[in-house]
Write a protein that binds this DNA or RNA. Structure first.
Length: 886
RNA sequence: GGCGAGUUAGCUCAGUGGGAGAGCUGUUGCCUUACACGCAACUGGUCGGGGGUUCAAAUCCCUCACUCGUCACCA
């Protein structure tokens, strides 16, 4: 073989983009082209990022984990599809466009709907290119040929089919309800889109006079401006204070309207005055109360959040804040206000723009969810779906059991327009798969389509099958559905995961995926969620520019333990970077040592203890990695390969192999390089899912590669027969001896490189001793000794020794050397041993232990006792010698 | 307030009934011809507090404290 030169420095910039694109262009990410298949499919649909969003660390984590899993499954021979796409994100995208318009001094309302949509599509296209480039930059091996967008033609058809079917099944209806309304965005929001946060405000006590002039009732409120919509005051039926007032009427201050006093048990006796003003159109509780008591609902707000014509003239068109001030002023002036106390309470805000949410009475479209939720609960009970980690099951169950109707209409322009028409002549509502041209009831052509669009989640809840072609019965749908795994963060279990399961059960009669891997959230080093407003986000693209996508993927995989949020900063990514660098350099070293050597068939080589040990460790690692990936414990897989590659392969085997490679025996040299290359080849495949690009780049230079690209290689199988405990023990013993000598020299203040002589006595069994004695040259080299003898170590004068179970090492030192540090260390060791021995002895002499502990435990304990005693006596002997040193 | 999770080395986290672990950081010494993103040796821990179960608890149970998440409420 000839030497192969890798670049001297590991620089991901020089190959990552090239390799990613090359494999993409050659179609390796498309399952249709996959050669190594076991006939089964493995599908992941990518949670579609908002098309106008910027890729943040959460996406990077999510997509890295999906990439790792899909690459692993691909290597196992599954026909692996990772389907990418983006979400039209109704409110968010419309918001982005409106901000752009604002900069141009324009407003949405100044243009026609079509003009606005045209503009939005162009903004969408621009942003789509950005987010796609970002996903490519982090080397996502998804099949771009199948990329979808929630508003493309196929998916829009799916949405239409879904809406009409649910309508026909009686699950979609229009109703007047109190919805969460964002005055800024001008649209209703679902309950889940409202974010609560604490706001410092006041609570006001207001006096409502009795109609008969016999006094007044005091109510407490945080929203005095809504009093214009008051229709009653409620008290608890058990409340003795108000017993005799029931049935009487009150005069609403500032308005003069008469309102009733009603009894309702929802009123808390302890809170405030125990009397609550009822404003059905602007408070969910009051709404429910009004329903129970058949009270009128007076809406006092315009859609833009200002007060409407149901309030006194001087208040009309004021916004809520100003109206509140004015009401308080007037109440104070007229003597109705009793007190004003500061109060901090939770107020709902729009999750997009942060505006205070108004409960608002309006006509909206809803989906009945309880039936679907029950089926989704059953699916979990039957084991059709499984959460990783399991704890998220309870979250899922809780939400499903407390499900409410889903408000699906949004007063936006960007989105799927609701396929419902009203006939202007007969008033009938028409919901059909094709746009109607005339009214099927009266034949009129005066039809008007509903102005609203659907909630964005109404398209994404169909994602696992709409992306594969549903409602058409496509080949993809048949092949890849149901999908296998969903990998997403826990903050959208409600929004998305649960609804996808319901939709799939409703329309496909089966679950959309089996495994649900809920990833951690990424936080900053202070534990805060990364967000734009805090400015604490780390841009994944910057990470890739600085360290490379492999380094990022490895780091995230290494840190992503199940169920634990991960806290990172820019420095965290050094972990992955260092690992890649190590892999690069080890490979570079092996490839620069090929000259004149011949590649042997590894299966025919008779293995020595070292290579038995290496293959034993390798096969253990393969097993751990497979088990870990199979159960989505990616961090376990990452640490297993990290430890094997760095410690076992590089630090031990490669170091030892340097001597083998210097051998004059050509057979030894050829066999050694063959084993080195074989293990390198296997480890590159093993780690490929976590560091796909650097392994691919190195693979291209391997003289023993089997395919054109690493991505075509089959994942290694663990060979149980290669596990060799005896070889493992021998090598571990030898490594311990070397460490002991180095450590002894260090504590005596002898420089590592300073030569000295040593004596080793090994008291272990014959084969271990024979192995250690046969490794004399290696010990001399790695411990910097000039002379090594195997005999009883304690007999010699002028030697300091260290002893552990099974062996003792002594090294010769000049009498002038300072042994204080060594004495201190031994004393520490001695007291620790005494403690351990004591504990063990106590255990063994405890009658209960002897009586009840398993025989294995007792056996082990006796072994420990013997071990501790031996070590202790050696330590004491060593101390005695050192104390008599001078 | 309900539910859930967490509390292990300076930092980030593994470890689920039998001798406290990793990576990073830190200290000391090394540019030993693959790697200074390296090598070697080492420092560092009443496993949040208290109680219980057990022969044996970081690990199981109870309780308290703090942190986080989530749902609900807040007139």
């Amino acid at each position: 073989m000839k030497n192969i030169e890798l670049e001297k420095v590991y620089s991901p910039k020089s190959f990552e983009e090239r390799i990613y694109n090359e494999l993409k262009d050659k179609g390796y990410y498309n399952p249709d082209n996959q050669r190594d298949t076991n006939g089964k499919t493995f599908t992941i649909v990518m949670p579609p990022p908002n098309v106008t969003g910027i890729l943040h660390m959460g996406h990077a984590l999510n997509n890295s984990l999906q990439d790792i899993i899909i690459r692993y499954k691909r290597a196992l021979g599954f026909k692996a599809l990772w389907l990418p796409g983006t979400d039209h994100a109704g409110i968010a995208t419309q918001h982005v466009v409106e901000v752009e318009l604002e900069k141009e001094g324009k407003h949405r309302k100044d243009m026609t709907r079509d003009e606005f949509l045209k503009k939005t599509w162009s903004v969408k296209d621009r942003h789509h290119d950005i987010i796609k480039k970002q996903l490519e930059k982090i080397a996502s091996s998804c099949d771009w040929s199948r990329e979808r967008f929630t508003m493309d033609e196929g998916l829009s058809k799916a949405v239409r089919e879904c809406f009409v079917t649910l309508y026909e099944r009686g699950l979609i209806y229009k109703g007047e309800y109190l919805v969460n309304y964002c005055p800024h965005c001008g649209t209703a929001l679902s309950d889940d889109e409202v974010e609560y946060s604490n706001v410092d405000s006041f609570i006001w006590d207001i006096r409502y006079p009795l109609e008969d002039g016999s006094g007044y009732v005091t109510v407490s409120t945080t929203r005095p401006e809504t009093m214009f919509g008051d229709v009653a005051v409620a008290v608890n039926p058990k409340d003795e204070r108000y017993k005799n007032l029931v049935g009487k009427k009150l005069i609403l201050p500032l308005v003069g309207r008469k309102i009733e006093i009603v009894q309702d048990s929802f009123v808390d006796l302890e809170f405030g005055t125990g009397a609550v003003k009822i404003t059905p159109a602007h408070d969910p509780n009051d709404y429910a109360c009004a329903e129970r008591h058949n009270l009128e609902k007076i809406n006092i707000l315009n859609p833009d959040g200002t007060l409407n014509s149901n309030v006194p003239k001087e208040y009309q068109n004021l916004d809520v804040e100003s109206a509140r001030k004015k009401v308080v002023e007037e109440l104070k002036e007229k003597g109705f206000l009793i007190s004003e106390k500061p109060l901090s309470h939770e107020v709902g805000h729009c999750y997009r723009c942060g505006t205070t949410i108004e409960p608002y009475l309006s006509k909206q479209w809803f989906v009945k969810m309880d039936g679907m939720a029950q089926k989704a609960l059953d699916a979990l009970k039957k084991g059709d779906i499984k959460f990783y980690p399991e704890k998220w099951e309870s979250t899922y169950i809780h939400w499903m059991k407390n499900i409410r109707p889903w408000c699906i209409s949004r007063q936006l322009w960007w989105g799927h327009r609701i396929p419902a028409w009203t006939c202007s002549d007969c008033g009938e509502v028409i919901v059909t798969r094709e746009d109607p041209t005339k009214c099927p009831y009266c034949g009129s052509t005066h039809l008007k389509q509903d102005e609203d669009v659907l909630d964005t989640w109404f398209s994404s809840w169909l994602w696992p099958f709409s992306t594969l072609g549903w409602p058409q019965n496509t080949k993809d749908l048949e092949t890849f559905f149901p999908t296998n795994a969903l990998i997403t963060a826990y903050d959208i279990i409600f929004f998305w995961v649960s609804r996808m399961i319901m939709a799939s059960l409703e329309f496909r009669g089966e679950v959309p995926f089996k495994d649900i891997y809920i990833t951690s959230l990424v936080r900053d080093k202070k534990g805060r969620k990364m967000s734009k407003s805090l400015g604490n986000g780390i841009d994944p693209i910057e990470v890739v520019n600085e360290y490379g996508s492999d380094a990022m993927k490895f780091t995230l995989g290494f840190m992503a333990s199940q169920g634990q949020d991960i806290q990172i900063d820019m420095n965290s990514f050094k972990l992955g970077s260092k690992f890649c660098n190590k892999v690069w350099n080890a490979s570079r070293y092996l490839l620069m040592n090929l000259d004149g050597k011949e590649l042997q068939d590894v299966s025919k080589i008779e293995k020595n203890t070292w290579s038995k040990w290496l293959y034993s460790r390798l096969n253990r690692t393969i097993k751990v990695m497979r088990d870990s990936f199979d159960s989505y414990k990616i961090n376990d897989a990452a640490s297993a390969i990290y430890s094997f590659f760095w410690n076992d392969f590089c630090s031990v085997y490669i170091e030892r192999s340097k001597l083998f490679l210097e051998s004059s025996d050509k057979k030894v040299v050829n066999e050694t390089i063959s084993i080195l290359l074989d293990v390198l080849h296997k480890t590159l495949i093993l780690m490929n899912p976590i560091v796909p690009l650097v392994t691919e780049e190195i693979y291209a230079s391997l003289p023993n590669k089997k395919c054109n690209y690493l991505i075509e290689e089959h994942y290694p199988e663990a060979d149980e027969n290669a596990i060799d405990k005896s070889a493992e023990e021998s090598v571990e013993l030898l490594e311990k001896i070397i460490t002991s000598i180095r450590s002894l020299k260090a504590t005596l203040g002898i420089n590592e490189g300073e030569k000295t002589s040593a004596i080793i006595s090994v008291t272990l069994n014959d084969s271990a001793r024979a192995f250690v004695e046969s490794e004399k040259e290696y010990i001399l080299k790695t411990s910097y000794l000039d002379c090594l003898t195997f005999k009883d170590a304690r007999a010699e004068k002028g030697y300091v020794f260290t002893g552990e179970m099974g062996y003792e090492c002594s090294i010769k030192v000049p009498s002038t050397i300072d042994v204080t540090e060594r004495v201190r260390k031994l004393e520490k060791q001695k007291s620790k041993l005494e403690e351990s021995l004591d504990a063990t002895k106590r255990k063994l002499s405890n009658p209960s232990f002897v009586e009840r502990a398993s025989s294995e435990a007792q056996e082990k304990e006796r072994g420990k006792e013997k071990e501790f005693e031996e070590e202790l006596s050696k330590t004491e002997a060593a101390l005695k010698i050192l104390r008599e040193w001078k």
